[in-house]
Structures are given as structure tokens and as C-alpha cells.
Design a protein around this nucleic acid. Structure first.
Lengths: 206, 206
DNA sequence: CCTGATTTGTGCAACAAAACACAATCGTGG
DNA sequence: CCACGATTGTGTTTTGTTGCACAAATCAGG
């Protein structure tokens, strides 16, 4: 039952469910329950059931959830039942690690383009992808119809690059630069800043 | 004024405030308001005021907040008014990028130890830190009294390493491995998984 | 010293999320 | 083919979070 506006917090949990379910599949499991999943994720069983029920009835009473089926459903909901081309901006250590990372392939993403403004880097290859000049970024992204970018540039130029990305049609940005970004409505940003993550934990240390 | 149990969601916003305030300081600003801060962060002014008021009265009516003072207060609250030694486990691309990253220094963290199980990597230096064998991890971490670790190992061994870290006294883990970790009460985990972050955004794409 | 423009801190109301609890359903084993 | 244990989906209750609105405080200018 595709209900009206699904809370964003629910959407945020789906990738976590998906990751755990995929792992169960790899372990040869065929069926699981909200209880088992909840124990593994530290989430209540009721919450998992309610989250999933927002999108349909995927389980069987008395039995649980067929993992393969549920994985397919969540992939469909999250629109990762396809492969999205992604652009990486910034060919420093982070950009390098992202390009080398093998984990995107099975999860709906493929790094298609890399950009940097350093002439020494432009033209070199990361894996089988040639680093392009950031001056060509907008044209290349628009031409390829890329909607997703990962931003791994210095904080000082992040906002400027974001403005260009948005103008080129990008609608989802994973930001590794340690600054808040201002984007127009309809464009989403997710933040990865190790210091921020660490600082949320130090509060609880002695 | 209520110093009792502060909601975790509030704690999670403080590092973001801190980052923005620090940036304002760098720009030479001395005073700001909840309204200005809110506009920059996409958060309501009321929320910022309420969050901060959980810890004390840091602003001045009619004037706003003295940025330097507020930065100091938030650093104190988050316990990043000191420098925490951090251990990195896994000397692959991610571990490498973390060690090279210059952004920890001013934000309360210092990478003090790196571990890997690859004999080819053990003994080599990343920056000025020598990669140590993971076999010595528990001893080294315990001896140094390290409470914070960043985990950048393959998913298949992540839980096993975490168990060792916890046993060695680590209480906060920033996990780059794409798996959910099970930890005892009192130990905190934060997750960084680019695919998960991206998948929360694809839902909203066309 | 008074007035008006700001801006904080907060009580209260509105909204959102999580937990509870249970009828309905399913599969199994006797 | 019946009874029982397991498990879902969901209406209701409980708990938590956010937004609103305003008194109180502050400052600048005349």
C-alpha cells in the first residue's frame, strides 16, 4: 500500500535493513523475522514491521520474511534496483579511496566521472577512469545525465563547486567537505565528516 | 537549565553548530544570532536556542551569542576541549586517507596508532606513524589508554576486531566497514557507509 | 534617561515517532 | 483436520521533538 508521505527517518533505515538482509543472504539464509533483524540492528521488531508495512505487506504471518523477496522490494523502493552513475569531485585521498572502493557496484552505484582542478592530476587514471578538468565538469555531468555527486574537495571551495553541480543537474550530493552546504529545494545533501561523528560520541566518554 | 538527561538528538547537532561557529570565527566574526546560524544550517532558530539552553544561558538578549565564548562552551560540553588519542585499524585506502587528513587536529583528535594484519604494511610509516601488527593491538591500546577507534577493515572481520577493541577498553568506534556491529552497553558506534548515505537519497530521485 | 529595535530563553501546544498489544494468519505435528 | 506456537500488520497509547509566541533583557540613538 503506497501510502502518502513516508517519513524521511523511515527511508533512512531502509538502507540499513537492506545491508543486513543482503548479508543474511550471503550467509545462505532464506527467511528471517522482524525479531531476528531487530536484534542484529539494535532496533525494535515492532519498528521494523511498521517501517516495512508503509510500503506493502512483505511478510508472512507465522513465518517471517523471505529475504530474497524483501531485498528485491527494498531495492525497488530505494530505486537501487538499477545502477546510478556517480561523479566524484576532488581527486585527493578521499576521492582516491572512493574510486578504489569496490563496494558500490552491488549497491546501485557506479563511479563514472572524476574531476579535479590540479593540472598534475588531470589526465591521470584512477582505476580505469581518467581524471578530468573541473572546468569541463558541468558539461560532462549534464551530457551524461548524472544526478549524484560525491564531493571530496577542500572546505574553502565546496559551496562554489556545489553551486556548479546543482546547475549541472545534480540532485543528490554526498559531502565529505567539513562545511554545511546551501542548496535549493529538491536537492539533497548527506554529510560525512569524521570529526562530527567522533564529537557526538566524546560527550558520552568519561 | 535542565542538566538532566540531554536527548541524544541534541548532542548530535552540537558538532554541527560547532563547525559552523568555528567557520564564522575564521571569517573574523565575533557575534552571531540563532537566526543567522539557523539560516546557514537549515535549522529553525528556536531549535538552536532550545538546544543550547539545555546546557546553560550562553547568549545575550538583544545581542546574540559571542562566537568565541560559545565555541569554547560547546567544546567543553562535547569534551573536545582536549585532544583524544585515536587508533585506526586497517591501513588500506580509508585508513590511509584518515591518517593523511589534517582536519582532526583542531577538532579534538589525534591519530596515535595504526594497525593492520598485512605483513607488507606492518613497519611502514603513514605520515610519522608506524603501522603496527594487529596482534599487538589490544596491548598497545590498553597501554595508551585509548578510548576511540576508527575501523577501516573488511566487513568480514569487522565484528571480530570490534570485540577485541572493546575488550581493550575502547568505548567509541567510528565504523567504516559496511556492517552493523554488536557492542555491549556503554560502547558507542557511529557508522559511515557511503552506499547507505547515497541510498537514502536515491529514494527521492525521479 | 527614554524609546524602539533586537534577540534570548522558555512554557505550552502541536506534531512526530516509537512502543505496546493483540487479532489474524500461517505452518507443523500429531 | 485440529491445536498450538510463531509471527505479521496495525489501531492505540505513550513518549519524544519541534514550533510558536511572548516576557524579559539589552543596546543604540537622540
Amino acid at each position: 500500500m503506497t501510502r502518502n508521505p513516508i517519513p524521511e527517518i523511515v527511508i533512512g533505515r531502509l538502507p540499513v535493513y537492506l545491508r543486513a538482509l543482503t548479508r543474511l543472504l550471503e550467509q545462505g539464509r532464506q527467511v528471517t523475522s522482524s525479531q531476528e533483524l531487530g536484534e542484529r540492528l539494535g532496533i525494535s521488531a515492532a519498528q521494523i514491521r511498521k517501517d516495512l508495512s508503509q510500503f506493502g505487506e512483505f511478510g508472512k504471518q507465522g513465518t517471517g520474511y523471505d529475504i530474497e523477496f524483501l531485498v528485491a522490494k527494498i531495492q525497488e523502493i530505494l530505486k537501487v534496483d538499477r545502477v546510478w552513475e556517480v561523479a566524484v569531485v576532488g581527486a585527493g585521498d578521499v576521492g582516491h579511496a572512493l574510486v578504489n572502493y569496490g563496494g558500490f557496484h552491488d549497491r546501485g552505484f557506479k563511479i563514472a566521472q572524476i574531476f579535479d582542478n590540479d593540472p598534475d592530476k588531470v589526465g591521470t587514471s584512477y582505476k580505469d577512469i581518467v581524471v578530468m578538468d573541473i572546468a569541463q565538469m558541468q558539461e560532462k555531468i549534464r551530457k551524461a545525465g548524472i544526478k549524484i555527486a560525491m564531493l571530496a574537495v577542500p572546505a574553502s571551495v565546496a559551496q562554489e563547486v556545489v553551486d556548479q553541480l546543482v546547475e549541472a543537474g545534480v540532485e543528490a550530493i554526498l559531502n565529505y567537505a567539513p562545511v554545511n552546504l546551501v542548496v535549493p529545494p529538491g536537492v539533497r545533501v548527506q554529510y560525512i565528516d569524521p570529526s562530527v561523528h567522533l564529537q557526538t560520541m566524546t560527550y558520552f566518554l568519561d
